[in-house]
């Protein structure tokens, strides 16, 4: 599958440019968080990806993480000052729905993940704990939620760099600077596996759409695939020359997307375990986030070419599209 760079650059993200640290994508939008206070929403249904909404001053010191529920109705953003905001997609726009205020300790809430229906929020901490909140809906108000602390788990892995929840919500995985990966059974809150990996930070961890595989990568420059249930190592994908910061599974689970600090983005075939495409950001800038663009539910949408989006300290959002009739 040779991928052609869809020579589309969305425009400078902000008036005074800052790094883009995180992306989230719905079938119609790309949402970006950066070193500036605003979160921007770009429409993917218009030809020039125009900005359809700005979440003004969402995080005064910048946004380091965004996480979207699988049903695309709940968004969580985490700011550098430590505060976490919950947004809900109502009447075609994102509305502020709730907030978990900043704790005194820096890094008390670092990486977020939402359950597929957006009802539960998981957050990692600076000392390896994992906090779970229930986002309790306000019955009268169609938007507001109240975060209620639901559970707290312990890992001994130190800073929680990344977290993900499987699509059936049964498993939660966290990754740490020590290289350790912990997998919890969400319903029993039992630690099911502690996966010793490379002895270097694991910066990104993602369950496959079917929940059978777990992909993890970081400073070792290798993508490790595990059987999510047994914890067994399945494969290692080598080819990146720099720290890997971001992974994303395609909708069908056939392809894995990876981005690294030297500006390279790679597409991997999960079946053949080979890299099928590599692209480089023009200015060799580090990538912080890579994402597939989800397709809509209509059959017309389904047959469209795959697209993905990348962003990083090059301060641009780049959109790539699968070349038509690829060999």
């Amino acid at each position: 599958m040779p991928l052609a760079k869809h020579s589309m650059i969305l425009a400078r993200h902000h008036a005074h440019t800052t790094d883009i640290f995180t992306l989230a994508a719905t079938p119609t939008q790309i949402i970006s968080g950066s070193g500036s206070p605003d979160i921007k929403v770009h429409s993917t249904t218009t030809p020039d990806f125009e900005i359809s909404q700005v979440l003004k001053s969402a995080h005064p010191l910048g946004t380091h993480h965004l996480s979207l529920s699988a049903n695309h109705t709940t968004l969580v953003s985490v700011g550098f000052s430590g505060e976490t905001k919950i947004w809900r997609f109502v009447d075609g726009i994102w509305k502020a729905a709730g907030e978990i205020p900043a704790a005194k300790k820096a890094g008390e809430f670092w990486a977020p993940a939402l359950s597929s229906d957006g009802q539960y929020l998981v957050g990692t901490t600076y000392d390896g704990r994992v906090n779970v909140w229930e986002l309790v809906r306000d019955e009268k108000d169609g938007v507001k939620v109240t975060p209620k602390k639901f559970a707290e788990w312990e890992t001994r892995g130190g800073f929680g760099l990344a977290v993900d929840v499987s699509s059936d919500n049964t498993l939660t995985a966290t990754s740490h600077p020590s290289g350790n990966i912990y997998v919890f059974n969400t319903s029993t809150t039992r630690l099911t596996h502690s996966l010793p990996t490379q002895a270097s930070p694991v910066r990104t961890i993602r369950f496959s759409p079917g929940g059978t595989l777990l992909a993890a990568a970081g400073d070792a420059r290798i993508i490790s695939l595990y059987d999510a249930r047994s914890g067994e190592a399945v494969a290692n994908l080598g080819g990146h020359d720099a720290w890997i910061t971001s992974l994303d599974w395609s909708h069908t689970g056939e392809y894995l997307l990876s981005g690294s600090m030297d500006g390279k983005v790679k597409v991997w075939s999960v079946e053949t375990r080979t890299c099928v495409a590599t692209h480089s950001e023009s200015e060799a800038q580090g990538l912080w986030s890579v994402q597939w663009l989800p397709k809509g539910e209509t059959s017309g949408e389904r047959t469209k070419a795959e697209r993905f989006v990348t962003a990083g300290n090059g301060r641009l959002i780049s959109i790539y599209r699968e070349a038509s009739g690829g060999a």
Partner: peptide, 27 residues
Amino acid sequence: SLDDVGVLDKCLTLTERDRTKARGMLA
């Protein structure tokens, strides 16, 4: 040095104090 793994691998991990200080300085 983001594309220089040799240099990056010599970098140290931020401590809790570093993070708290960085957050204050960022403000």
